[in-house]
Design a protein around this nucleic acid. Structure first.
Length: 255
DNA sequence: ATGGTTGAATGTCAA
């Protein structure tokens, strides 16, 4: 089984790129973040034509998550399902072929100390609670998406410069540790060590991709029953090298 | 020193 995740930075702007990637790689599950489109405008048919079911939680203009799967998803839940936390297109959960798939677009946080930063902290705390209240560590479960945290010094191009900034801050590390304490493992680090493995390169930095000024902020986490079944986890840089790319690229895991 | 790019929407914000 092949599972992949991709922050598309607009699913419509990236439609041809995604359709080609799906045709070439034939994943069983493909999680998209930052779809930037309401559900009734999502290009559903293009994916259905390739044999995918589509589970959506989109809003107008920003955010938005979509989970595509060859096997029909069940128990689809958009948002945290508590009627309290904002339904802002950042989390969609479903069960696919007996495996829980939680696809998230974690808030960016903008700048440390801002209102958006506070929301990111609260969101991460809410997500830790969501795991504890809805799942067990011995469930077959994957958490994947744009996590918006580079958790170790190897996960960002200049850790000394970025430490204490948004995306590489101790308060983020602590909250991610608490989430992982549920029983989740970062699959990429099961197979690859060291610096330079990134999933996002900021458009703003001149020749940022060519100079590999990146961040590893798109992750796939697994509970123990899925970790032991994982045989491969890779970053595919090809989508980032295309014309009109997203600023992120695809991360994939095989089971 | 606060630049630079992209997408959605058409103001300007979010990333």
């Amino acid at each position: 089984m092949l599972v992949a995740t991709y922050n598309a930075a607009s699913v419509r702007a990236r439609l041809d790129l995604i359709l080609e990637w799906l045709s070439e790689n034939d994943p069983d599950i493909f999680a998209i973040q930052e779809t930037k489109v309401e559900d009734d405008k999502f290009p559903r048919e293009d994916f259905e034509d390739l044999g995918y079911h589509v589970a959506l939680h989109g809003i107008k203009a920003w955010n938005g998550v979509a989970t595509l799967s060859k096997v029909e998803p069940t128990a689809v839940r958009a948002g945290f399902g508590d009627g309290i936390f904002p339904q802002d297109g950042r989390i969609i959960t479903c069960q696919i072929d007996g495996i829980w798939i939680i696809n998230t677009y974690v808030p960016n946080g903008n700048t440390v100390g801002s209102e958006k930063w506070d929301y990111k902290m609260k969101w991460l705390e809410r997500f830790a609670l969501y795991l504890q209240q809805n799942f067990r560590p011995d469930d077959k479960l994957l958490w994947l998406g744009d996590i918006n945290i580079a958790p170790t010094p190897d996960d960002v191009y200049d850790s000394v410069k970025m430490r204490g900034k948004v995306g590489h801050h101790p308060d983020e590390f602590a909250r991610l540790d608490r989430i992982k304490a549920f029983g989740l493992t970062d699959l990429f680090r099961q197979f690859h060590q060291g610096a330079g493995h990134y999933t996002f390169w900021d458009f703003v930095l001149p020749r940022g991709y060519e100079r590999n000024l990146g961040w590893r902020i798109d992750h796939i986490y697994a509970t123990e029953p899925m970790r032991t079944r994982c045989i491969r986890c890779e970053i595919d840089r090809l989508p980032r090298e295309r014309t009109k790319p997203s600023d992120h690229t695809v991360v994939l895991a095989e089971f």
